[in-house]
Simulated assay, not measured.
Amino acid sequence: MRLATLRTTSGTIAVRIDGDTAVEISDVTDVGALLSDPAWRERARVADGARRPVAGIADAEWAPVVPEPAKIVCVGLNYRNHILEMGRELPEYPTLFAKYPEALLGPYDPIVLPAVAPDAVDWEAELAIVIGATARNLDEVDAAAAIAGYSIMNDVTMRDYQYRSPEWFQGKTFEATAPFGPLLVTTDEFELGGILSSTVDGERVQQTPTDDLVFGPARLVSYISQIFTLRPGDVIASGTPGGVGHARKPPRYLTPGAVLETAIEGIGTLRNTVVAGG
């Protein structure tokens, strides 16, 4: 299945995307709320609410696919080519940090350059793993079963703030900077291996198969579940491949007017225009 969250005049609504039609899942405000129901798969499958053509949905109506996850766990240095690009050795364990829900944007919302940090804003295309069942101390087999599906996130990063200290967090969770969506594609309809890419003004800047991950989805869920409980609707941003602007010589960053597109084969495309902050 393909699921999404749409904005309405009275809030948000979860929908199932059937080809070119969006079908409302009645009385469910968003995909995160849907996943909190242990019977979410059947509830989404049989939903027969109001229908509308996908082509008629305005860009501004698409919300982050899970608008308010309780946890967003991010993974650094998890694609082999990016690790080598940054001059590091392959890690023995995942590098983890956090992002807050306030950082999330809809898949077509503008990225507003922060007024305090407008000059070193970088792109990081990522496969997002969305949790569909409570996960605590799971082995990799059970961890895989706890994954609801996959989406796309761009972990837009303020590099100057990131490197103010050895901890990356402060450059990674600026408010309204991380587009997320447009869909959650359930595990039965998605396999690793498709191309993850990003483009800036039509120029391809990242392109890597999603199976180049050092730590795959089940391994990440298993490892993180040993530290704390993952719950339905939580999100893991699994890391970015090579091609980030900060690693280029000279560095290249996002500027007002740029159009950033982030795509994963089998899921879709984020498209976000960069605008100057106030």
Rank of each mutant, 00 (worst) to 15 (best):
R231I: 09
A218D: 10
Y163L: 13
I147C: 04
P166N: 08
I195W: 11
F190I: 05
E203V: 12
F169C: 14
R219C: 09
L183R: 13
R204T: 13
F180Y: 06
A176V: 01
Y161D: 05
F228H: 15
P232Q: 05
D201L: 00
L183G: 00
R159M: 13
R164L: 11
G193I: 09
T177H: 06
E167M: 07
D155V: 08
Y223R: 06
D212C: 07
V214D: 06
R231Q: 14
A178N: 14
T229C: 02
Q170A: 15
A176Y: 12
Y223A: 13
V221C: 00
F169W: 15
I227M: 13
I224A: 03
I224S: 06
E189F: 02
M158P: 01
Y223H: 14
Q207V: 09
A218M: 03
Q207L: 11
I147F: 09
V221M: 01
L230W: 07
G171I: 02
S222E: 04
Q170S: 11
V214F: 03
D155A: 10
I224V: 14
P209R: 07
V200Q: 11
S197F: 08
V214I: 03
T187Q: 08
F174N: 13
W168H: 15
G194N: 09
P182H: 03
G171V: 09
S198N: 14
L230V: 00
F190E: 01
Y223E: 11
L184I: 05
S151V: 10
T199M: 10
A176R: 15
G233Q: 00
P232N: 12
P217T: 07
L192G: 01
P166M: 08
G202Q: 02
R159T: 04
L183E: 12
E189M: 09
G216F: 01
Q206W: 07
G194W: 11
Q206V: 02
M153N: 10
R164P: 01
G194M: 10
I152E: 12
E191F: 05
K172W: 05
L183F: 15
G193V: 05
T229A: 06
G194H: 10
R164N: 04
T186L: 03
P209N: 01
Q162E: 13
W168T: 12
E167V: 06
A178G: 08
T208N: 13
G171Y: 07
S225E: 01
T157V: 08
G181F: 09
L213F: 08
V156D: 12
V221Y: 08
S165R: 13
G233T: 03
P209L: 06
L184C: 03
S165N: 12
G171A: 04
D201W: 00
Q207Y: 14
Q170H: 14
A148R: 11
V221Q: 00
F169G: 13
S198I: 11
Y223T: 10
